[in-house]
Design a protein around this nucleic acid. Structure first.
Lengths: 335, 335
DNA sequence: TAGCCTCTTTGCCACGTTGCAAGACACCTG
DNA sequence: CAGGTGTCTTGCAACGTGGCAAAGAGGCTA
C-alpha cells in the first residue's frame, strides 16, 4: 500500500493538512516544519494520489488531442508540439486516434464516456461531424483544428487553406507549368474542399482552364493514396507537368510513382505538397511545400482550450495560423 | 455541474447504489429497473466521474508509454500499436516524450511524481539508466522495450539485435559488397552496441576485415544525423560500397546525401536500415530493411504489463520479438 | 399456509485529497 | 501588560464512486 498524507503526517508529527500545504505549496509553511515533512515524504516515498486530487479539485489536468492517425507525420509533429504547449500549463495530453470515419464514432463516444478524464478536447479529426462535436461540447470545452464549415460555433485554429493552396499553385504557374494536377480532393472534407477552391482560383486567375480530369480524389491521405492517384493521372492520355498535393505524404506517394515510371522531378513533373513534414526535407528530391506553423497552431489551441476551461462562457474565436511556401528541389530543379 | 449517480438515482426513483450497479454491470439488475435508470442517465447526460472511480477502485486504467520522440516514425508506429493493444484490455495509453538525456530525467521524474496517474509504464526510452528505472519500478510495474544491459531485473521485449544486424550485413555481403560501412554506432547505447556487434560478427564470419573508419557514430537517430554521417564516410579517401544503418531514418538521411553527391543507389552504394517504417516503402529507391514485428512488441509489452499490474510478484521475462529482412530496391537494384 | 430460497435492491462507509475558516502561537506596540 | 497583528497550523467536511453484506420482495415447495 502506498503512503498517504496521513502516513506522512504521522511520521512528521504534523496534521495531514500541513502535509498537503507543503506538497501543494499554496500556503505558507514554516521552514522547520517543511523540512520535517519533506524528510518524511522522502523516507516514505510518498506520492500524491492523482485520483484523489482530481476528485477533490474537480479537474484532471489532462486534455485530449484527437487525431486521425498518430503515425501520420503531420499529426505526430502536431502531437509533439501540443504536448510541449500543454506542458507549459502543467497540463498533460492524452492522444486519441480515430483511424477512420466509422471507428471515429466509436472513439468519440468512448472519449465522451470517460469524459471526466479530460478537462477539454482538441479535435484534429476530419471525420467528425457537427453533431458529434456538439454532443461532446456540451460536456466539456472543445477546440477544433483544421477547417470546418460550422466553425463559428467553436474555437478553431487553422491556416488559410484557400490562400495556402493558391500560393502553392501560383508557384507552379510561375514556373511555367500549364497542366497542373491536384491530388487529394474530397467532397466531404472541409479542408480538402478549400484547397480545391484555392487550386481552381489560382488557375482561373492565371487564365488557365480547370480540367476536372486533373483533379484526383483520394479516400485517405496516405502515401499509397498519393501513389495510386499519380498512377491514374499518368495513365490518362496527356500527363500533367506539375502536381499540387493536399499533403506532403500524398506528395511523397506521388513522387514514388513518378520515380517508378521513370519520370524526372521536377523536369517532367514538378511536385508541391502541404504540411512541411520532416520526410519531405530528406526525400529525393526534397519536397517543395506549404509550411504551416505547427507550434503556433498547437500553442494557440492549447492556450485557447485552457482559457475556455477556466471560463466556459468565452466567445468562440477563429484563429488563422501562419503558413509559408518553402521551395525545394521538387519544383525548383536540381541545384 | 455534471450529473452524479445521486442525481440519476433521484430521477429514476432508485438508490445511488442501483445506478452504480447498472453502470458497471457487475450485479444483476431487473430489466425494468435497468431501463428506468438508463433513461435517467440519458436524460441527465450522466457520465461516470473518472477521478472518483479511480480513487475508489485504486487503479486508473491508464498506462504510460515513454518514448524518446513521438515524431520519429518508428515510435509513432509503435505508439499506435500500443494504443491498440491497450484498448483490448480497456486501458488507455498516455504518451510521454523524453527528447534527450537531460530532458529525460526531468520527464521521468515528472512521471514519477504523478505516478499514481498510471497503473504501469512501458519504457522505450534509450537514455534512461538502471537507477532511474529502478526508482520508478518501486512505485509501479515497468516493462522495457529495446535492449538493456540490466535486462534481467525487468520485463523486457526486444528483437534479437545481434541477429538482426548480422542478417542485414550478411545480405550486403551476399550482394558482393566488400566495403560495408555502419551508421549509428553509439557507445553508451545498448541497442546500438548490439547492432555493432552483429555488424562486426557478420563481417568477420565472411572473412572481411573490420575497418573502424567505416563505423560512423551518430549522436541521435535523426535523418540529419544519417545525412551527416554519410557525408563523413564519403569525404574519407575510399568510399564504401554499402552502408548498414541502425535505423531507417538514418538510412533515409544517408540516401539523401548519396543523392546530393550524385551517387547511385544501389549501384554505387547499397543501403539497408532497420525498423521498416512506412517512409522507407515509398522512398526513392524503396529501402531494404529489417522489419521488427511492432504489433508483437506492443502486444507483448501491454499484456505483460497488465499481467504485472495484476500480480506485482511475477518473475521478469525476456521476450524476443520476431524480425525479418525485407529486400527492396535500395540493395537489390532497380526493378 | 408456513417456511425457505432466490433474485433485487439498499445503506453505510471509505478511498486520499484539499477548501474553508477558525484556532494557536509568538511577537510587537503603546 | 493588554490588545493587536501576523504567521503558521489544524479540524472538519465533502468530492463521487463501489465493496460489502444485509434487508426486502416475491415465488415456490411441502
Amino acid at each position: 500500500m502506498a503512503a498517504t498524507v496521513k502516513d506522512v503526517a504521522r511520521r512528521a508529527g504534523v496534521s495531514p493538512r500541513t502535509v498537503s500545504n507543503v506538497v501543494t505549496g499554496t500556503t505558507r509553511v514554516a521552514d522547520a516544519t517543511r523540512a520535517r515533512v519533506e524528510q518524511a515524504i522522502a523516507e516514505l516515498g510518498y506520492r500524491p494520489n492523482a485520483a484523489a486530487r482530481n476528485l477533490r479539485r474537480g479537474r484532471t489536468g489532462m486534455i485530449a488531442l484527437v487525431v486521425p492517425e498518430l503515425d501520420q507525420p503531420y499529426f505526430a509533429e502536431l502531437a509533439r508540439a501540443t504536448i510541449a504547449a500543454a506542458e507549459r500549463h502543467d497540463y498533460r495530453v492524452m492522444l486519441e486516434q480515430t483511424d477512420a470515419a466509422e471507428s471515429a464514432e466509436r472513439r468519440v463516444f468512448a472519449a465522451d464516456q470517460d469524459s471526466t478524464l479530460f478537462d477539454g478536447i482538441i479535435f484534429s479529426a476530419v471525420e467528425i461531424g457537427l453533431s458529434d462535436v456538439r454532443s461532446i461540447s456540451q460536456a466539456r470545452p472543445v477546440v477544433l483544428l483544421g477547417e470546418r464549415s460550422f466553425e463559428s460555433a467553436f474555437d478553431h485554429v487553422a491556416i488559410d487553406n484557400v490562400a495556402a493552396a493558391r500560393t502553392a499553385v501560383q508557384h507552379l504557374i510561375d514556373l511555367g507549368r500549364t497542366r497542373i494536377a491536384a491530388i487529394g480532393a474530397q467532397d466531404d472534407h472541409d479542408t480538402a474542399r478549400l484547397r480545391t477552391l484555392g487550386y481552381t482560383t489560382a488557375l482561373r486567375d492565371a487564365g488557365q482552364a480547370v480540367d476536372p480530369a486533373l483533379i484526383e480524389s483520394t479516400r485517405r491521405f496516405h502515401r499509397a493514396d498519393g501513389a495510386e492517384a499519380m498512377a491514374r493521372l499518368l495513365d490518362q492520355g496527356e500527363p500533367p507537368d506539375a502536381v499540387f498535393c493536399y499533403s506532403d505524404v500524398l506528395a511523397l506517394g506521388a513522387m514514388h510513382t513518378l520515380h517508378t515510371r521513370g519520370l524526372r522531378i521536377p523536369e517532367d513533373v514538378a511536385v508541391v505538397g502541404i504540411d512541411d513534414i520532416e520526410d519531405g526535407r530528406f526525400s529525393h528530391p526534397p519536397l517543395t511545400t506549404i509550411s504551416p506553423d505547427k507550434e503556433y497552431i498547437a500553442r494557440q489551441a492549447v492556450d485557447r482550450l485552457i482559457a475556455r476551461i477556466g471560463d466556459r462562457e468565452l466567445a468562440a474565436v477563429d484563429l488563422v495560423a501562419p503558413s509559408e511556401l518553402v521551395v525545394r528541389q521538387s519544383t525548383s530543379g536540381t541545384p
